[in-house]
Amino acid sequence: MIANESNSLTFFTPEASNELGTVFFDTGISCGFPAPAEDFNEQRLSLDKELVRNRETTFFARVSGQSMIGAGLEDNDLLVIDRSLEPQNNRIAVCFLDGEFTVKRLRVEQGEIWLKPENPNYPIIKITEENEFIIWGIVTNVIKKV
């Protein structure tokens, strides 16, 4: 991946890969009682094929901050962002606002746009004509470390 850093997000672009993917056991892993191991069906899995719909318009960015913890986006999570998707009410978007990147939930009502954090310690931002504002892309997936 190629990195490009801003103040609040670090962006990455996917690199083309000829790899077949990682071994994937398509059995379903039980979160209750253990399941018999004899039914394992080994396949190859490419996370690019699972997470990236449009390679030319997809980027990755690492989250910095706590404003979206209520939506499950935590510091250092990796976002998959598709720039070809249409912004819609209630989607989580990466936006360029007044010279900085931010990730927030879009609220669009009666021709007005708000950026809503998912943490009550952060204010809702109303977008006005005075703002330099671009919806840069829509978050499609989140990759977490455990």
Score class of each variant (00 low, 15 high):
Met1Pro: 04
Ile2Thr: 12
Asn7Ile: 15
Asn7Thr: 14
Asn7Cys: 04
Ser8Asp: 03
Leu9Gly: 12
Thr10Cys: 08
Thr10Asn: 06
Thr13Tyr: 13
Pro14Gly: 04
Pro14Cys: 09
Glu15Pro: 01
Ala16Asn: 07
Ser17Glu: 04
Leu20Lys: 10
Gly21Arg: 02
Thr22Leu: 05
Thr22Gly: 00
Val23Arg: 10
Thr27His: 08
Gly28His: 08
Ile29Ser: 05
Ser30Asp: 15
Cys31His: 12
Cys31Met: 12
Ala35Cys: 05
Ala35Gln: 11
Pro36Thr: 04
Ala37Met: 09
Glu38Lys: 07
Glu38Ile: 06
Phe40His: 10
Asn41Met: 00
Glu42Gly: 02
Gln43Ser: 03
Arg44Glu: 10
Leu45His: 06
Asn54Lys: 11
Asn54Val: 10
Arg55Ile: 06
Thr58Asp: 14
Phe59Tyr: 10
Phe60Glu: 05
Val63Ser: 02
Ser64Asn: 13
Gly65Pro: 15
Gly65Asn: 08
Gln66Ser: 14
Ser67Glu: 00
Gly72Tyr: 03
Gly72Trp: 09
Glu74Met: 10
Asp77Met: 12
Leu78Ile: 13
Leu78Glu: 05
Leu78Gly: 01
Leu78Asp: 03
Val80Trp: 02
Ile81Leu: 08
Arg83Tyr: 15
Arg83His: 15
Ser84Lys: 08
Ser84Val: 05
Leu85Ser: 00
Pro87Thr: 11
Gln88Tyr: 08
Asn89Leu: 01
Val94His: 02
Phe101Pro: 11
Thr102Gly: 05
Thr102Ala: 10
Lys104Arg: 14
Arg107Ser: 12
Gln110Tyr: 06
Gly111Met: 01
Gly111Ile: 00
Gly111Cys: 02
Trp114Cys: 05
Lys116His: 11
Pro117Met: 10
Asn119Trp: 08
Ile127Gly: 14
Glu130Leu: 04
Glu130Pro: 00
Trp136Cys: 03
Trp136Lys: 05
Gly137Gln: 08
Val139Thr: 11
Thr140Phe: 04
Thr140Tyr: 06
Asn141Trp: 13
Val142Pro: 05
Ile143Gln: 07
Lys144Pro: 03
Val146Ser: 09
